[in-house]
């Protein structure tokens, strides 16, 4: 393994991580809920009374974030190499997988690990392992 020191951005990564943690903290301590993006979005597809508004508000906050951010600082680049076909397959797998596994990087990876949940540790291990394996296959076996 070689380390990409040129691409390594420890300070912005740590600062961003602290902000993500802060967002999860606000949501847990004020709203009493887990800031799990796939669960919040997925719940919108299963409408229950009184359960919609806060989900929509959270999603709107995420959607508005790049706009608000751009008023303070220039947005960093988002390089997306995946083509349309890959994006569709990836999106489908992420959608169905996060709902079956009851969580994604935020719900299991951040909130679940912070709660010391064994269930989330297993889920995080599973999606990290599959992520590493997929990139290995795509980049080094088929490249």
């Amino acid at each position: 393994m070689t380390i990409d020191w040129a691409g390594f951005t420890p300070y912005s990564a740590l600062a961003g991580g602290l902000l993500i943690g802060l967002a999860a903290a606000i949501f847990a301590l004020f709203s009493g809920r887990i800031a799990g993006i796939s669960g919040i979005v997925g719940g919108l597809l299963r409408p229950k009374g009184g359960d919609i508004a806060w989900r929509v508000a959270f999603v709107l906050g995420l959607l508005a974030a790049p706009w608000v951010f751009a008023t303070v600082a220039p947005l960093p680049v988002s390089r997306i190499d995946a083509g349309t076909g890959t994006l569709i397959v990836a999106g489908l797998l992420v959608g169905i997988g996060t709902r079956y596994g009851a969580g994604c990087t935020s719900g299991h990876g951040v909130c679940g690990l912070s709660r010391l949940s064994p269930r989330s540790l297993v889920a995080t291990g599973a999606f990290m392992a599959a992520g590493f394996a997929t990139v290995f296959v795509v980049r080094h076996l088929f490249a």
Partner: peptide
């Protein structure tokens, strides 16, 4: 499943 999509 999620991890495969994430990795793609």
């Amino acid at each position: 499943t999620f991890g495969v999509g994430w990795g793609l």
